[in-house]
Design a protein around this nucleic acid. Structure first.
Lengths: 200, 200
DNA sequence: GCAAATTAATGATTTATTCAAG
DNA sequence: CTTGAATAAATCATTAATTTGC
């Protein structure tokens, strides 16, 4: 049995990885030239044609959007009163900007001066999430968080581990991702040590 | 009646979106301070705690890696002769660098001077993809790639639509993604990562 | 169309490794 | 060599998505 001639392109992991990397990088609709270049480079890893690249981006973008829309639908059709956004009239564009703004200024390392296309898209989708297709949905119950303390939560023990749940825009430290890579030992503050490793 | 206490955090679409954005941006292991900040900001959209953020990044990173590993496994255990990498001894580190290099220099916009952590990780994973655990998994369509020629494939028709399948590193246009928003990552440095040794 | 049953995702915990001090 | 911090990997558990029988 000759393997099926396989009618369709099957990306190798390397190809996929690189396409995803480019997508992550912000590329959404490569032009002909870009597609040519990408195709040429990726062909090192296996058979691939320009149209494969083209379609991949088309599909990936579409599915990304669809996923987001689905999530928004599900979430907002959810029973009210237990969701913040549901309580408020719904954030105005200004509020949204104000909130997402932190993303923008927060990490100059990976978010440039302008919002990335993805974020912009998403914001627009969120702010005017009126339409959207039919999407089933059911409820779910969010409430309480037992938080079994334990584990390596020592890192935040002293500090306010998490803002349990306030509702205002909240404005604390605006410093943010100050690294990305690594420096593990970074400046996590004092190695308070203490807990961890013990009850096991 | 008291609704189910609900034991776990359920991210709102907005929270998810922003976490993903940060992840995409390159953030992998936020330190305590970053977690605090993120938590504070995201709490605007609903209940959330530091540990949720912490766990989210842990899991997301882990599952990303796992996904890649799986793909590599699947791919390399695949019947040979129809995959390029299988034919070659397997690219040496130098070759890999040489090939991924294009990603680095190709789009200065979104890939800084150094490879992003993700890419570095992946490269390392690929180059030494020896071990890996048993992983069941059903064939989930990797990433549909239609090929119904026709359609709006006019854009590349004239040009060499795709390099059908040559095998050398291929070096054509190095111009590349000429747009998008912005340069992100800063000095990601090399990081090495090296998740888990191998022969143990 | 619905809702129980099944399957996939993913949040939360636990266990193992790794690495750097001491 | 031992110890402790920091992660990665593995696993558990619950919620979301699908499927299936009425």
């Amino acid at each position: 049995m000759p393997q099926a001639p396989s009618t369709r392109w099957c990306p190798t992991p390397e190809q996929l990885m690189m396409l995803e990397e480019m997508y992550r990088g912000g590329l959404r609709t490569p032009n002909a030239l870009q597609i040519q270049s990408i195709t040429a480079h990726l062909s090192y890893y296996g058979k691939i044609e320009g149209k494969n690249v083209f379609y991949w981006f088309q599909n990936h973008k579409a599915r990304d959007r669809q996923k987001l829309r689905k999530r928004l639908n599900r979430h907002h059709q959810m029973l009210p009163q237990q969701h913040y956004l549901a309580q408020q009239p719904f954030p105005t564009n200004h509020q949204i900007e104000a909130s997402y703004g932190f993303l923008r200024q927060a990490s100059p390392q990976f978010l440039q001066q302008g919002l990335r296309e993805e974020v912009a898209e998403a914001m627009s989708l969120i702010s005017k999430h009126g339409r959207c297709e039919r999407e089933e949905e059911q409820q779910r119950s969010v409430e309480t968080s037992p938080m079994t303390s334990g584990y390596e939560w020592r890192m935040l023990t002293g500090a306010s581990t998490g803002a349990p749940s306030s509702c205002r825009p909240l404005r604390t430290l605006d410093l943010f991702p100050t690294r990305i890579t690594g420096l593990r030992g970074d400046g996590i503050g004092s190695k308070s040590s203490s807990c961890s490793a013990s009850t096991k």
